[in-house]
Protein backbone atom coordinates (compact mmCIF):
# COMPACT_ATOMS: atom_id res chain seq x y z
CA UNK A 1 0.00 0.00 0.00
CA UNK A 2 1.02 3.57 -0.56
CA UNK A 3 1.50 5.80 2.45
CA UNK A 4 -1.38 8.22 3.00
CA UNK A 5 0.63 11.42 2.69
CA UNK A 6 0.19 15.11 1.99
CA UNK A 7 2.48 14.80 -1.03
CA UNK A 8 1.78 12.59 -4.05
CA UNK A 9 3.84 9.44 -4.60
CA UNK A 10 5.48 9.65 -1.22
CA UNK A 11 8.66 7.57 -1.03
CA UNK A 12 11.03 7.11 1.89
CA UNK A 13 14.79 6.79 1.82
CA UNK A 14 15.87 3.20 2.43
CA UNK A 15 18.23 3.67 5.34
CA UNK A 16 19.76 0.20 5.29
CA UNK A 17 20.60 -0.21 1.61
CA UNK A 18 23.62 -2.52 1.29
CA UNK A 19 25.59 0.36 -0.27
CA UNK A 20 25.51 2.13 3.11
CA UNK A 21 27.59 -0.57 4.81
CA UNK A 22 30.98 0.25 3.26
CA UNK A 23 31.35 -2.97 1.28
CA UNK A 24 29.82 -5.16 3.97
CA UNK A 25 26.39 -6.68 4.21
CA UNK A 26 24.38 -7.47 7.32
CA UNK A 27 23.64 -11.06 8.29
CA UNK A 28 21.80 -12.39 11.31
CA UNK A 29 22.57 -15.65 13.05
CA UNK A 30 20.29 -17.43 15.49
CA UNK A 31 20.89 -20.61 17.49
CA UNK A 32 17.44 -22.19 17.89
CA UNK A 33 16.31 -23.18 21.39
CA UNK A 34 19.22 -21.44 23.12
CA UNK A 35 17.60 -18.35 24.57
CA UNK A 36 20.40 -17.69 27.00
CA UNK A 37 21.25 -15.48 24.03
CA UNK A 38 18.11 -13.38 24.10
CA UNK A 39 17.86 -12.66 20.37
CA UNK A 40 19.59 -13.55 17.10
CA UNK A 41 22.84 -11.68 16.61
CA UNK A 42 23.87 -9.30 13.83
CA UNK A 43 27.14 -8.96 11.89
CA UNK A 44 28.33 -6.62 9.18
CA UNK A 45 30.71 -8.65 7.01
CA UNK A 46 31.87 -8.88 3.44
CA UNK A 47 29.62 -10.85 1.07
CA UNK A 48 32.87 -12.54 -0.05
CA UNK A 49 33.37 -14.11 3.37
CA UNK A 50 33.60 -17.89 3.04
CA UNK A 51 31.04 -19.82 5.06
CA UNK A 52 33.60 -21.59 7.21
CA UNK A 53 34.67 -18.28 8.70
CA UNK A 54 31.26 -18.18 10.34
CA UNK A 55 31.99 -21.55 11.91
CA UNK A 56 35.52 -20.69 12.94
CA UNK A 57 35.15 -17.15 14.17
CA UNK A 58 31.75 -15.52 14.24
CA UNK A 59 29.64 -18.28 15.74
CA UNK A 60 32.15 -19.27 18.46
CA UNK A 61 32.66 -15.58 19.27
CA UNK A 62 28.93 -15.15 19.73
CA UNK A 63 27.96 -18.42 21.40
CA UNK A 64 30.89 -20.14 23.08
CA UNK A 65 29.83 -19.05 26.58
CA UNK A 66 26.99 -21.57 26.41
CA UNK A 67 27.72 -24.81 28.29
CA UNK A 68 26.42 -26.85 25.33
CA UNK A 69 28.47 -25.07 22.72
CA UNK A 70 31.41 -27.50 23.02
CA UNK A 71 29.04 -30.42 22.49
CA UNK A 72 27.66 -29.32 19.15
CA UNK A 73 28.07 -31.97 16.47
CA UNK A 74 28.50 -29.70 13.47
CA UNK A 75 27.86 -32.54 11.01
CA UNK A 76 24.34 -32.99 12.32
CA UNK A 77 23.46 -29.31 12.53
CA UNK A 78 20.36 -28.30 10.57
CA UNK A 79 20.66 -24.93 8.86
CA UNK A 80 17.75 -22.68 7.92
CA UNK A 81 18.26 -19.71 5.60
CA UNK A 82 15.44 -17.16 5.54
CA UNK A 83 12.97 -19.80 6.65
CA UNK A 84 14.08 -22.58 4.22
CA UNK A 85 16.22 -25.66 4.88
CA UNK A 86 19.74 -24.96 3.69
CA UNK A 87 22.95 -26.89 3.13
CA UNK A 88 25.98 -24.64 3.32
CA UNK A 89 29.08 -25.00 1.17
CA UNK A 90 31.93 -24.36 3.55
CA UNK A 91 34.42 -22.98 1.02
CA UNK A 92 31.98 -20.87 -0.96
CA UNK A 93 31.31 -17.23 -0.16
CA UNK A 94 28.10 -16.05 1.47
CA UNK A 95 27.07 -14.27 -1.73
CA UNK A 96 27.69 -17.35 -3.87
CA UNK A 97 25.21 -19.42 -1.85
CA UNK A 98 22.43 -16.88 -1.59
CA UNK A 99 23.14 -15.49 1.88
CA UNK A 100 22.40 -11.93 0.89
CA UNK A 101 21.95 -8.64 2.74
CA UNK A 102 19.83 -8.94 5.90
CA UNK A 103 19.47 -12.70 5.55
CA UNK A 104 18.68 -14.78 8.60
CA UNK A 105 20.74 -17.92 9.09
CA UNK A 106 19.48 -20.17 11.86
CA UNK A 107 21.02 -23.37 13.15
CA UNK A 108 19.36 -26.10 15.08
CA UNK A 109 21.40 -28.54 17.15
CA UNK A 110 19.41 -31.74 17.63
CA UNK A 111 19.84 -33.33 21.04
CA UNK A 112 20.84 -30.09 22.71
CA UNK A 113 17.79 -28.65 24.43
CA UNK A 114 19.40 -25.71 26.21
CA UNK A 115 20.06 -25.31 29.92
CA UNK A 116 18.26 -28.17 31.72
CA UNK A 117 16.19 -28.69 28.60
CA UNK A 118 14.50 -25.31 28.99
CA UNK A 119 15.31 -24.03 25.52
CA UNK A 120 17.67 -21.51 27.07
Amino acid sequence: MAVAAITDNYAGERLDRVENFHGNQVIYIGWDYHLMFCAPVAFAISPDTPFDRLLEELIPGAYSQHPEFERIDWDSVQWILNGEAFTPELDASLAAQGIDHKSILRFNTPGLGGIQGSGS
Binding site: G30, M36, C38, V41, F43, G61, G114, Q116, S118, S120
Partner: peptide, 28 residues
Protein backbone atom coordinates in the same frame (compact mmCIF):
# COMPACT_ATOMS: atom_id res chain seq x y z
CA UNK B 1 9.32 -24.23 32.76
CA UNK B 2 11.03 -21.70 30.50
CA UNK B 3 12.93 -19.11 32.51
CA UNK B 4 14.06 -20.27 35.92
CA UNK B 5 16.83 -22.59 34.72
CA UNK B 6 18.24 -19.83 32.52
CA UNK B 7 18.25 -17.35 35.38
CA UNK B 8 19.83 -19.80 37.81
CA UNK B 9 22.52 -20.54 35.28
CA UNK B 10 23.24 -16.82 34.91
CA UNK B 11 23.38 -16.51 38.68
CA UNK B 12 25.88 -19.37 38.84
CA UNK B 13 28.01 -17.68 36.20
CA UNK B 14 27.96 -14.46 38.23
CA UNK B 15 28.97 -16.31 41.40
CA UNK B 16 31.86 -17.83 39.49
CA UNK B 17 32.98 -14.30 38.59
CA UNK B 18 31.86 -14.59 34.97
CA UNK B 19 28.71 -12.50 34.87
CA UNK B 20 27.15 -13.15 31.46
CA UNK B 21 27.09 -10.35 28.91
CA UNK B 22 26.13 -10.99 25.31
CA UNK B 23 29.24 -10.16 23.29
CA UNK B 24 27.46 -9.61 19.95
CA UNK B 25 24.98 -6.94 18.86
CA UNK B 26 21.36 -8.10 18.59
CA UNK B 27 19.11 -8.30 15.55
CA UNK B 28 16.31 -5.73 15.76
Amino acid sequence: RYYRARFEHWREMERAGERFYNPTLPML
